[in-house]
Simulated assay, not measured.
Amino acid sequence: MAPPLGVQLYTVRDALAADRDAALARIADIGFTAVETYDPTADPEGFRRVADDLGLRVVASHALQLVTGDPERVFDALATLGTDFAIVPAGIPAEEFTTHDGLARTADLLNGLAERAAGHGIRLGYHNHWWELEPVFDGRHAIELLADRLAPGVVLEVDTYWAAVGGADAPALLRRLGDRVAALHVKDGPIDRDGPHVAVGAGAMPVRQILDAAPDALRIVELDTCAGDFFDALADSRRHLAGLEAV
């Protein structure tokens, strides 16, 4: 059975800011049952009540505050939200991925955070952009060298679109990373840094091959930008992915 299909709520950040409860209701009406939050400390009690009422489960959360703020506050919020999966989405300078020493420092940071998280029953992951892929060492992308240095319990949420923008063959990368990949950001577009994202299946990404390369990973749909309506793009994405899973 395929993992649950979720939405990274950063996709609808403007709608959430305007009316959180209405935005979550639209996500549920589209047919999603899982979400990934991006600010776990923003009223976790109220968020959990609404999500539970709508049948939405928080399967993971981005948590920049693990790097920039108070990790203990984040761990408490994650427990309230009902998830045991925290993801560092940014906050580490891109330059750290351009040298072996920088990669060692990054691994030490993530391994230390993972040890603290484990004390709260929380698994730690790291989410990439393009700058972890662009540096190549002896034919291997920087994120692959980082994975070599991570403690066994630290996982990756591979943003497949940004991986492609960074120069990687996304399906091949996923196969090489193997069990280290616990989640995918599934997104689509023209595979360039600045073009607007589109509904999954409407762009240039090899979506079927990506899903096949990491069959057990969580699937999280995200659009950072969109030329049209974000909710319409999410609905189209869900239909496309549900059709692929049915094959």
Rank of each mutant, 00 (worst) to 15 (best):
R49Y: 11
F85V: 12
F32K: 13
D19H: 10
I191V: 15
L110F: 09
V158R: 01
A227W: 07
D19T: 05
H141I: 09
L146S: 04
V186F: 09
L177S: 09
Y10N: 00
E115C: 05
G6C: 08
R48S: 11
T68Y: 15
V50W: 11
P152F: 06
D76A: 15
R176N: 10
A213V: 03
V165Q: 07
G201I: 05
F137Y: 02
R48D: 08
I122S: 05
F230D: 06
D52G: 14
R49L: 15
L241F: 02
P135Q: 00
G82K: 10
H129M: 05
R105Y: 00
I87L: 13
H62E: 06
R140S: 06
V67P: 12
A163Q: 03
A142N: 09
E157V: 08
A172Y: 02
I30L: 14
D39E: 13
D216E: 15
D84E: 15
L184Q: 07
E144G: 05
I87R: 07
F137W: 02
D108T: 13
D52A: 15
T41D: 15
A42Y: 10
P4E: 08
G195V: 05
D138W: 02
D101I: 08
A2Q: 11
A151Y: 12
R73P: 13
P4I: 11
V59I: 13
F97C: 11
N111C: 01
V186G: 01
S61F: 14
A17F: 04
A235M: 09
V154I: 06
N111K: 04
E245G: 05
I92N: 01
A204Y: 01
P190N: 09
T80C: 15
A107M: 00
G167R: 02
P171Q: 06
A202L: 10
H62C: 03
L145M: 10
E115M: 08
V207Y: 00
V50A: 08
R20C: 06
S237F: 00
A242G: 13
D29T: 07
A25V: 14
L244I: 12
I30V: 14
D224G: 06
W130D: 15
L64C: 08
D212H: 11
G243P: 05
G119I: 02
E144A: 10
L241W: 00
R73Q: 11
R116W: 02
A90P: 01
G243N: 07
G69T: 03
R13Q: 03
F75N: 12
F137S: 09
V247M: 13
R239W: 03
V200K: 00
L177M: 08
V158A: 00
Q8M: 05
A213W: 06
Y161G: 00
A170M: 00
G189V: 04
H185A: 06
A86M: 09
V12F: 02
D224H: 00
D236E: 13
G166Y: 09
A15D: 10
L109T: 11
L9V: 01
A164E: 02
D229F: 02
V154S: 01
L24T: 09
L81M: 04
R26L: 13
T68V: 15
T98H: 06
